[in-house]
Write a protein that binds this DNA or RNA. Structure first.
Lengths: 132, 132
DNA sequence: CAATTGATGTAATAACATAACATCTGCAAT
DNA sequence: ATTGCAGATGTTATGTTATTACATCAATTG
């Protein structure tokens, strides 16, 4: 999928996520955009919905937050399953991909005749700096 | 870890989850236990907290729900990372384990000197029956 | 210009989770 | 047995995350 031109709200939300050091909740994004006219959560959620669809933003299910995709430019859907390491101390998120993991999961899924739509892999713990 | 004797509330919550066909939200559990004297969400969340700790219940992060562990008797922590396939149509959840996936993720983690605490793997999609 | 479509604005509410504080219960130490 | 503690429980209130419902606006197209 190619990413279409972002709308005004989508751009605002995406910019906030790109400039952020770590993941943000929808309500944190909302607060950061009050000056730009955002008043209601739905403005954020609607933009996020599209950004997720375009693959330029990821949702971290285990912490109800959102991050900009680590691959500037091209969309992330082509990299296979995305995995995240989330530091519970500093909030830093590292995105990675492992094709062997993908293969194993997809092999299991095939064996079950399960039809996967969206796969979540999230490792929560402490990053090197925080574990020291 | 060995599972201690469950308290009254823990037993009630666990029984509800065991008898359920699929994952339940904390508030659904609460509703099912009103007749047994449950009045507030905290009663459920406190029981769940312990049951998760004992490894007899799992939390499905992507759907804010809880399921009884598929391994009756022994605790689940010994099986390595737990993965779930969640049918978005019928709600059925299948729990599985893949040591190769564990190895790959733990190898990545070691390379980053990341210290993992809790890992989530959830595949959402359609089960064989629902995909037909 | 009318009709359609997608984006946006706004208010209200639903769904999920925790904080703070009081009370109770079982049990160990004296 | 009583005191003191720890863990479990009860209750109220509140905080956080997400969606429903409905109105409006802007761009496009027939």
């Amino acid at each position: 999928m190619t990413t279409p031109q972002l709308t005004k709200n989508q751009s605002l939300v995406f910019d906030v996520l790109e400039k952020a050091e770590g993941p943000l909740s929808a309500y944190t994004i909302l607060d950061k955009l009050r000056d730009h006219g955002f008043r209601a959560p739905l403005q954020v959620y609607r933009a996020l919905e599209k950004l997720l669809e375009y693959g330029v933003v990821h949702r971290l299910e285990s912490i109800n937050s959102f991050v900009a995709c680590a691959h500037p430019g091209d969309d992330c859907h082509s990299h296979g399953i995305v995995a995240f390491a989330i530091c519970e101390s500093c909030g830093q998120v590292t995105e990675f991909h492992d094709h062997e993991v993908d293969h194993r999961l997809m092999a299991w899924v095939r064996g079950q005749k399960f039809k996967p739509a969206k796969t979540t892999i999230e490792i929560r713990g402490l990053c090197e700096a925080c574990a020291a």
